[in-house]
Amino acid sequence: MTKKELALYGELMFGPRFQPRLAAILSHFRGKPIASAQVSQWLAGPDGQRDPPDWLDPLVVRAAIQMRHDLLARAETLEAMNTKHFYSEVTKHGFMGGPWKGVRDDDYVDPEATVKLPTNSN
């Protein structure tokens, strides 16, 4: 795994200040402590200097699988909550001043409010 890939995994899982949380979940799966400073060292400097070790790859993938599972569970809970409230409010008040038939919650999505995710530009 390259430094760039490790950084992308970390940021996608935990946001821009990911090192402490990434270190914690890697420590959990490794069964030994991994310090946040160690994660920072793996990310620092040019490729070829203190690169992430090979044993880290399966731990990072396992952490990503766990995080994906957790995020999907949270998304499903939000979906259930939104469905209940969205349809009760739309049927009561209409949709943005218009009729509510055929309206979906996706119609409320504001692209400007969407979290900007890091990209993997090679």
Results as ranks from 00 to 15, higher is better:
Ala63Trp: 00
Pro46Met: 13
Pro33Thr: 08
Val60Lys: 02
Asp47Thr: 09
Ala80Gln: 12
Pro46Gln: 15
Pro111Trp: 09
Pro53Ile: 02
Lys84Leu: 14
Thr83Asp: 15
Phe29Arg: 01
Ala80Val: 11
Leu26Ala: 01
Phe95Asp: 09
Thr119Cys: 09
Ala7Arg: 07
Arg74Ala: 13
Pro99Cys: 15
Asp105Ser: 09
Gly97Phe: 05
Lys32Tyr: 07
Asp47Pro: 06
Arg62Gly: 04
Pro52His: 00
Arg104Val: 15
Asp51Gly: 03
His93Thr: 15
Met96Ile: 13
Thr83Tyr: 12
Ala37Val: 03
Pro33Gln: 08
Lys92Asp: 12
Trp55Tyr: 12
Gln19Met: 05
Gly94Phe: 06
Glu5Leu: 10
Lys92Cys: 10
Gln19Trp: 01
Gly48Thr: 03
Lys101Arg: 14
Ser36Leu: 01
Leu78Trp: 14
Ile25Cys: 03
Phe14Trp: 04
Gly31Met: 04
Asp51Asn: 05
Ala24Pro: 02
Tyr87Pro: 02
Ala80Met: 10
Leu26Tyr: 00
Leu43Ala: 10
Tyr108Ile: 14
Val60Met: 00
Tyr9Gln: 08
Lys32Cys: 06
Val103Glu: 07
Phe86Lys: 06
Trp55Pro: 03
Pro52Tyr: 00
Asn120Arg: 07
Leu12Ala: 05
Val90Gly: 07
Glu79His: 13
Ala75Thr: 06
Gly98Arg: 11
Leu8Asn: 08
Asp105Ala: 10
Gly94Val: 08
Val60Cys: 00
Phe86Gln: 08
Gly15Phe: 06
Phe14Pro: 02
Ser27Asp: 01
Gly102Lys: 06
Asp110Cys: 13
Pro118Thr: 13
Leu71Glu: 11
Val61Cys: 03
Pro58Trp: 02
Ala75Asp: 07
Glu11Tyr: 07
Arg17Pro: 11
Ile65Arg: 03
Gly45Trp: 04
Pro20Arg: 04
Leu6Val: 04
Thr91Ser: 10
Asn122Asp: 13
Val103Pro: 03
Asp105Ile: 13
Asp107Cys: 13
Asp106Lys: 12
Ala23Met: 00
Ser121Thr: 14
Met96Ser: 12
Ile34Phe: 00
Met96Tyr: 10
Ala7Leu: 07
Ala23Leu: 02
Ala64Trp: 01
Pro16Gln: 14
Asn120Thr: 05
Leu72Met: 09
Asp47Cys: 05
Leu8Ile: 11
Met1Gly: 09
Ala75Val: 07
Gln38Leu: 02
Glu76Val: 14
Glu89Met: 15
Tyr87Gly: 06
Asp70Val: 08
Phe18Pro: 04
Gln66Asn: 03
Arg68Phe: 03
Leu12Cys: 10
Gly48Ala: 04
Met67Cys: 07
Gln38Arg: 02
Ala7Val: 07
Glu76Phe: 14
Lys101Ala: 15
Leu71Cys: 10
Pro111Glu: 12
Asp105Glu: 09
Leu117Ala: 13
Lys84Arg: 13
